[in-house]
Structure formats: C-alpha cells, structure tokens
C-alpha cells in the first residue's frame, strides 16, 4: 500500500458516495446514465468474486463489500426508487458494443485461462470503458449538473492515481500487471477531455455545458 493507491481508493469511494448522496438529496437521478451504473455493478461483481476464495486484508475485504453494496444501491435508486426521474431517453448508448468486444478480449488476452481469472480480466477491461454511456449521455444533452461533474472527476482521478501506484510498485516492488496497466491507461485517457472541461469550467464556477 502506498499513498497513490490509498488516495486512489479513497477517490473512488468519494466518487461513489457523491453519486449516491446526489441522488438521495435531490431525490432524482436526472443526468445519470443507468447503463454506466449497470456496467459498474457488473465490473465489481465479476472482479470481487475472490471475496469467496481468498482473504487479502480487512481493508481489502471491506472496501470490496462497500463498492459492491454502493453499486447495487445506486442501481436500486436509478431503476426502482427514483425511476420516474431517470432520463432513459438520453441514455441510449448501445452497451453490447462494449460487452461483446470486452468479453471476447478477456478470453483472448488474460493471465490464466480459468473462470475466475477470465472474469477478473473481463472486469478490468469493462471498467476501462464503463463510463462511456455516461459521457455519451452528457454529450447528447450538452450539459451536466455540477455535482455530476464532481462524481466524474473523482472517478477519473482514481484510475489516474492508480497509474502512479503502478509506477511506484514497479520501482519499489518489481510488480507490474500489464493487463491492469494498459486498461488503466485507456480508462484515464477517456477522461482527459472531461478533465480539461472540469478544470477550465467547473472549477471556475461555471456549469459544464458543451457548445451545441
């Protein structure tokens, strides 16, 4: 555990909690892509199956349980409790365009051809692109609530911090996981355009809106 890994995890946790609180406080999930949230729930579920097979640390186990619990709580909010506020008409990204290639790739490029390992690989690849329905929704409506942009910022920051964590681990532990690193790079790059808008607009007190 190093400072980048810890702040990365906390940033991830902050993102998840910001989103839950936003929905709860405003009693609305307007502007939130339910499809991205489904993908994140699939990501956590397929990756953390090792909760059943191996114990790493109390920190590791509790964070996994919290992430999974929050992911399903978010889904419950979007598709059940606050379903009336869900903006499904704008949430039109075709997730099969992500699921099929990602599923295929996880069978082809993995560390070990075993069910749990393939599911882990699938979750890493899927996570790298799971935000696309949300970004697509924002590009379609041309705007995002400021609180939603805070959510996206922390979610993007988390994987960027993991990149520094992997550099650290490579130098000090000789550890590297090529699958996680490449997917993490892709994931971070997808946020770059958003980071630019966040810094140049949201941090200066303006609402994030895209030119028509």
């Amino acid at each position: 555990m190093n400072v980048f890994r810890l702040t990365g995890d906390l940033s991830h946790l902050a993102a998840i909690i910001i989103l839950l609180l936003k929905i709860w406080k405003t009693r609305s999930c307007a502007g939130i892509s339910g499809k991205s949230q489904i993908l994140f729930a699939v990501v956590f579920t397929s990756r953390y199956l090792d909760l059943l097979t191996s114990f790493i640390s109390l920190y590791n186990t509790s964070m996994k349980v919290i992430y999974i619990g929050c992911a399903y709580a978010t889904l419950y909010f979007v598709y059940m409790k606050f379903k009336a506020t869900y903006d499904g008409n704008h949430d039109t990204f075709r997730v099969e365009f992500l699921l099929v290639p990602v599923g295929g790739l996880s069978f082809l490029v993995n560390h070990d051809f075993s069910p749990l390992e393939i599911l882990w690989t699938f979750s890493i690849y899927l996570e790298s692109v799971a935000i696309l329905p949300q970004l697509f929704m924002i590009s379609k409506t041309g705007e995002a609530e400021t609180i939603t942009t805070h959510y996206l910022f922390f979610l993007g920051l988390y994987r960027a911090l993991y990149l520094f964590n992997w550099i650290w681990r490579f130098y000090f532990e000789g550890f590297f996981d090529m699958i996680a690193i490449v997917a993490g790079l892709v994931q971070t790059i997808l946020y770059c355009d958003f980071f630019y808008l966040y810094i140049t607009k949201v941090l200066k007190g303006k609402k994030l809106s895209l030119p028509a």
């Binding site: 090792d50 191996s54 590791n60 996680a180």
Partner: peptide, 10 residues
C-alpha cells in the same frame, strides 16, 4: 490456486 497473479488491488 486463484489469485496467483496477486490481485490485491481494488
């Protein structure tokens, strides 16, 4: 044995 690749991260 699962976890031989040390998936100790989240």
């Amino acid at each position: 044995e699962y976890n031989v690749y040390g998936h100790d991260e989240l």
